[in-house]
Amino acid sequence: MSSPHIFEGHGVGQTMFRVMAALVPGIIVYVIAFGPSILVSLAIASITAVAVEALMLKIRDYPVKPFVFDGSVLLTAWLLALSIPPMSPWWLIVTGTVIAVVFAKHLYGGLGNNLFNPAMVGFAALMISFPAYMTHWPAPMALTSAHLGFADQLSYMLTGSLPAGMDVDAINMATPLDTLKTQLHLHHTVSEVLRMPIYDVIGGKGTVWIAVMYLLGGIYLWRARIITLHIPLAFLGGLFLMAAFFYLKDADHYVAPWFHLVTGGTMLGAFFIATDPVTAASTPKGKIIFGLGIGALTYVVRVLGGYPDGVAFSVLIMNAFVPLIDAYTQPRVFGHVKQEEASR
């Protein structure tokens, strides 16, 4: 063994578990706003992820213990579970998790080698394969009279059956982003739409508070020096600028930029998904380009595209550009006048 002889490295595991800890406040608010079903989602995704990870490691002849306990697969499972509707049937969650762990992670070589964000690959696969399930979000508890207890939610997720006299449409509704898009298509103005009960002061009822909690978690990650602010700020900045441009042009048809910041997957995406180090750009300049790209693309998908939210697809698209971005944004090395093109 040669120098150095002292180490500070906390290990991959500790980093991952701190990221998960930063998600907890958001999850708590999630439970308050939409009921405890999200906890079932998280549990199903976690168990599936650990089992599939262990199996893949076994098949690939890797030591199982250190990799399962590095926390990376649990974090993937959590991010996926938090991205899909909380009252999804169990098989949907299992399918997404298996796709994320097997296809997006292990077929690329496992921890550290995947090009695309596994949680977002799982999400995108589900979105394309099962769009009906992926757009059915439970209504915030404050808005619905048809209250489902924990037992009912659990039973729906595991068996697909609802208590007598209730149907899916009674408990589900479109998300704030989805509603906005649909209503704008029906030639309502933004201000008319935002008077609907699903909206809170600046975002969706309930979801806005979850977003705030994710923001707080993100600030913790920054203070703990697990992430830098380049990507989140560039992401939010890119989204804000795009939204502001259209909003100033035509406030009747384009919603205000702050609405975009607290709605949908923005905060979760900015602080927890886009910052996944394995799949994100890694140079300071590159991180800014990467974040701006995701932000701008998210806006494009949300407003012009067919899907209700655009974070997942934007992240995946920008993931593909990471090697290129990194190669062209290498910083100047000490003692070099100008960075030669190392990429050539």
Partner: peptide
């Protein structure tokens, strides 16, 4: 006094090495 380094795991490109490098290299690359 000098605990041996724990077993290595794959690089996750967390870029802490690049942030610590006094000559601004990209050790993970």
């Amino acid at each position: 006094l000098f605990p041996p380094e724990p077993p290595a795991m794959p690089c996750t490109r967390c870029t802490h090495c690049a942030e610590a490098c006094p000559v601004n290299l990209r050790p993970y690359e």
